[in-house]
Design a protein around this nucleic acid. Structure first.
Lengths: 193, 193
DNA sequence: TGTACATCAGTGAACGCGCGTTCACTGATGTAC
DNA sequence: TGTACATCAGTGAACGCGCGTTCACTGATGTAC
């Protein structure tokens, strides 16, 4: 059946949004196209009217997720009292809610190792998204030179992503809490050093 | 054919060692049993004389890798001049050689997100290995109380693992180098704070 | 305004492939006598 | 010391299942006349 104009684009966006959540929580290999489409009350065959392959979707879903994650970081920083920006950023990232919400959380924490394993030729879309995220965040980082601010931004975000990922492996909430708690202090001291 | 005594144990160890490398470099889902066994000039059927399932091997391979990785960390610390222990530890972890050597490198950097996605009931072996690694490392960390040293140990190791994982996603060696370089300074300052 | 045809997002069966696991079999060495 | 049998690590075909992708088909709406 034929659908009204803009219907196709809407479906495409729904696919990206659902994929972005499923890929983060189950990994891209643990999230089959058919399950994804069933979520949206569609069948798997239709997927290929929107994307040439699963790989294309993975890149778009990653981008959407990192955009979202960056928006939250910026919001936290801009709500903070002057001088408390980095504290706010770190608290917004390293907390139990973010830790439990893998599907809605930072895609670097969820998918970085998968990206590192993709063939080099297919990593460019991911790297562009990462670089633009870094450029977006480095403006808020204190530091004498751009180079210093960029280095600290990268170390902070990649470090916090690693900590979050490991915290998520722990089954006991007390453990996760303790890990996040200790790490917040650690990163705050590091950023101000 | 029947094999001499100890032959079986030797084969088992060879499987664990090979698996530990393949899992790190390709992810556990990207490393089929058949390929693993072919590496060792064996066929896939024989695998089940040694392990009840692939999952059992994953846990053992992770343990072996983290033991190895811990040994290297301890060696770096103990070779260091007094006062330079943390610098040595950080330099030993965040360098280009470790970055390129995924198969032989830290299994937390390579596999943490996969562990976090396993069903809670099957994570215990991994968590025990992680906890014992932390206990092993915290003795070397400066800090007033055990709790402080433990928190810093966890934050440092999980953070460096995240940084290494993201660095590995970058296809350009200059980028990887810059990321590792900046992060070394960052973590060194953090540990001494 | 009404009719005939074109479009194309979505359907669902089917294909091809990979992979974890099972199982009947092999055959050199160990053991019982 | 020699012979018959048992053992069991390893073999390789086969099973069952999941998943990415293809493709002929559907049918409501848009368009041409």
């Amino acid at each position: 059946m034929r659908y009204p104009a803009h219907h196709k684009q809407q479906t495409r966006e729904r696919i990206v949004r659902a994929a972005s959540r499923r890929f983060r929580s189950r990994g891209t290999e643990g999230a089959p196209i058919a399950d994804l489409m069933r979520d949206l009350r569609l069948t798997h065959g239709g997927f290929y009217r929107h994307f040439g392959s699963k790989e294309g979707l993975v890149a778009e879903a990653f981008e959407a997720a990192l955009q979202e994650s960056g928006d939250r970081a910026v919001a936290a920083i801009e709500k903070a009292a002057p001088g408390g920006e980095m504290q706010a950023l770190i608290d917004a990232y390293l907390n139990l809610r973010h830790c439990e919400d893998i599907a809605g959380g930072c895609p670097v924490a969820a998918l970085a190792s998968e990206i590192a394993r993709r063939p080099k030729g297919s990593r460019n879309p991911f790297l562009q998204v990462l670089r633009s995220h870094i450029r977006r965040m480095e403006q808020y980082m204190p530091g004498a030179t751009l180079e210093q601010r960029r280095q600290k931004t990268i170390a902070l975000f990649t470090g916090m992503a690693g900590t979050l990922t490991v915290a998520r492996a722990f089954t006991d909430e007390q453990d996760r809490h303790a890990i996040l708690d200790g790490a917040r202090k650690f990163y705050l001291a590091a950023v101000n050093a």
